[in-house]
Design a protein around this nucleic acid. Structure first.
Lengths: 145, 145
DNA sequence: TGAGAACGTTGGCGTGGCCAACAAGGAAGA
DNA sequence: TCTTCCTTGTTGGCCACGCCAACGTTCTCA
């Protein structure tokens, strides 16, 4: 008996599928938010700015490790951030193969704007859940990760 | 106080981030499974085979609607499935702009093999959870989707 | 001093998802 | 009937995210 949602049965109730679906919906909202208020930035940029704001200046390799972003992608994302003066890169005098990356005042402001956008989206994503259910979901997902 | 997991605080506890992380882990396992036992097939192929098996022959447009896959991607995925004789396409005599797609016996077998692989992966993904927690997670995710 | 590791960079690949444009075929209204 | 509009399949392209290989440079350590 086909339901309204014609996703095949073997797919519909699988946890991996539900995760993909839920993540897809969240991602769509995030992309829309970045599109509307993100000044051309994307997820990678936000993660990098967040790491810099929290732990201060760091090398690109450390940034990659702290954010789970590949070194090569860190390079590309930082170039854009630097182009928009949200970040500064200079060679570490003590270790000249390293770049020391610093968030600028503009970067701080961009990060704070994104914080608001992203925080709002959390509510949109979790809209179907009660506060207690939201807490449960976060707990369970944290166990999974 | 930085913990072992140096994901920035503003990112670490957000539901959208947890969903992305959990989905990423599931996806990595799925890709490994497809790589090892998938005969070169991917998620799109599995979804299409599943839809064909469950509801019988269908047009490509209907397949796209039932699986949430874009028409253009349906075309590409079906071409591969047809190349491997897992699927047959013929023009609908009554509506000659349509292709009627049918799963073959080989396609049924491939689908069943993938079923086993994917079912196993569900257990891997949910390994950190008790049976009760798994049920809870599925319930919550279904509300979200 | 010499070998090996770490760093930043370039270039590439794959998956999943999305969109635009087009020709062919069909449907519905003038 | 004719004309307009819609659907279908196809091609080609784009994006985000993740990952990997290779390279030259720089540093460390045995």
């Amino acid at each position: 008996m086909p339901t309204d949602d014609r996703t095949p049965d073997r797919v519909r109730s699988r946890p991996t599928w539900l995760l993909a679906r839920a993540h897809g919906r969240a991602l769509a909202l995030l992309h829309a938010g970045f599109e509307a208020h993100g000044d051309g930035l994307r997820g990678y940029h936000y993660r990098l700015l967040a790491a810099l704001e929290q732990w201060g200046p760091a090398s690109q390799a450390d940034l990659g490790r702290d954010t789970g972003i590949d070194r090569s992608d860190v390079t590309a994302a930082l170039r854009q951030l630097e182009d928009e003066a949200l970040v500064e890169r200079r060679v570490d005098p003590g270790h000249r193969r390293r770049n020391i990356v610093t968030i600028t005042a503009d970067g701080q402001r961009a990060l704070q704007r994104l914080d608001v956008v992203i925080a709002d989206i959390q509510g949109d994503v979790l809209a179907p859940l009660t506060p207690e259910q939201r807490r449960q979901l976060v707990d369970l997902l944290e166990k999974l990760v």
